[in-house]
């Protein structure tokens, strides 16, 4: 099966030119990442802030320049695509952002916001677009009269539904969602999770979800990739990753998720330290300064991402449960 969207050895770096008083610096936000989103699949990317997960999503969509490697869409190298092909790709891969207050134009009525992708991609006639907007509003659980109102008249959850409707407008095959829940109230998050699941079942959508909410990821994802300092350190099916994490970083993240009904925390088992600066990544495995299982090998040699078993890849010299 051809992957819908695929990164091969993808590297993204940000840099500034040397100034008068300082040398130029290059930061590799994404380092040699290979990851594929299959049609109809829900793939989640998790990791702490600064791990490069948002940059990876943006690079897949061509929103940031690529320093190395390739991005393939439906098997075609996106760097070699014509403008028309790029536009076609952007029609079928849509994005939903974290903040529904910042991502909707406050001066446009909701109907115009949702119809905008239809205008851009010249889909349908004026009348058919109006019909499509009503259909989309219904699909995301809003009433048709919402089309005439403005974003500020809606709550955060309703705005995220509007953002969803806009993403669905041109009939995408995949939606890339960057922290789609974190700005929403707790009781609204479950409504959105159910909506995303219902839309997937109905439209056969693939999702690439960027999230730090591991419980939500566990609920929706088929596969999960853990990122640390720009690299993928583990990829596995959601069940394998949550029940038998192989990378100590994944295990530490899972252990840190506060859960209900387990009683008060006993201080002492938190993962120490912060994610290091990507300006000065540690030598060897980037996680070794915080890793409870680190050895001298980890400090000198970066582990490659390799298959631990079928469908479970890990980049660790001493994967958990391997011995």
């Amino acid at each position: 099966m051809t992957a819908l969207l695929e990164a091969i050895d993808l590297t993204v770096s940000f840099g500034d030119r040397a100034g008068w008083f300082r040398p130029g610096q290059q930061v590799q936000a994404v380092r040699a990442v290979s990851l594929a989103l299959q049609p109809g699949e829900v793939l989640a990317v998790v990791g702490e802030s600064g791990s490069g997960k948002t940059t990876l999503a943006r690079a897949l969509l061509g929103m940031v320049p690529i320093a190395g490697g390739t991005v393939r869409f439906d098997g075609c190298d996106t760097a070699a695509m014509t403008a028309a092909q790029t536009l076609a790709m952007r029609r079928v891969v849509q994005m939903v952002f974290q903040d529904p207050f910042g991502s909707l134009d406050p001066r446009l009525p909701v109907g115009a916001i949702i119809a905008e992708p239809l205008d851009i991609h010249r889909i349908g006639t004026k009348a058919s677009r109006r019909e499509r907007v009503a259909e989309l509003l219904d699909l995301v659980g809003l009433s048709p009269d919402a089309a005439g109102r403005y974003p500020h008249q809606f709550s955060g959850g309703q705005r995220q539904r509007i953002a969803f409707a806009r993403a669905l407008a041109p009939g995408p095959r995949a939606i890339i969602a960057d922290e789609p829940l974190s700005a929403l109230d707790v009781s609204i998050q479950s409504q959105m999770l159910n909506l995303a699941a219902a839309l997937r079942a109905r439209l056969g959508l693939a999702y690439l979800i960027i999230s730090h909410d591991l419980a939500a990821v566990h609920h929706v994802a088929d596969r999960v990739a853990t990122m640390y300092l720009g690299r993928i350190v583990e990829v596995a099916s959601v069940d394998a990753l949550f029940s038998t994490p192989a990378h100590p970083y994944t295990a530490a993240l899972l252990a840190a998720v506060p859960r209900i009904g387990t009683g008060k925390r006993v201080p002492g088992d938190a993962l120490g330290g912060d994610i290091p600066s990507p300006l000065a990544p540690p030598p060897g495995c980037a996680f070794h300064p915080r890793c409870p299982a680190a050895t001298s090998l980890c400090a000198t040699e970066a582990p490659a991402l390799r298959a631990l078993r079928a469908g479970h890849d890990v980049a660790c010299h001493h994967p958990l449960g391997a011995a």
């Binding site: 702490e48 506060p258 925390r265 201080p267």
Partner: peptide
């Protein structure tokens, strides 16, 4: 904060 740092801060407050 990230979950790992969150755990550190919760531990600190409890201590």
């Amino acid at each position: 904060l990230d979950v790992s740092v969150q755990a550190q801060i919760l531990d600190l407050l409890l201590e």
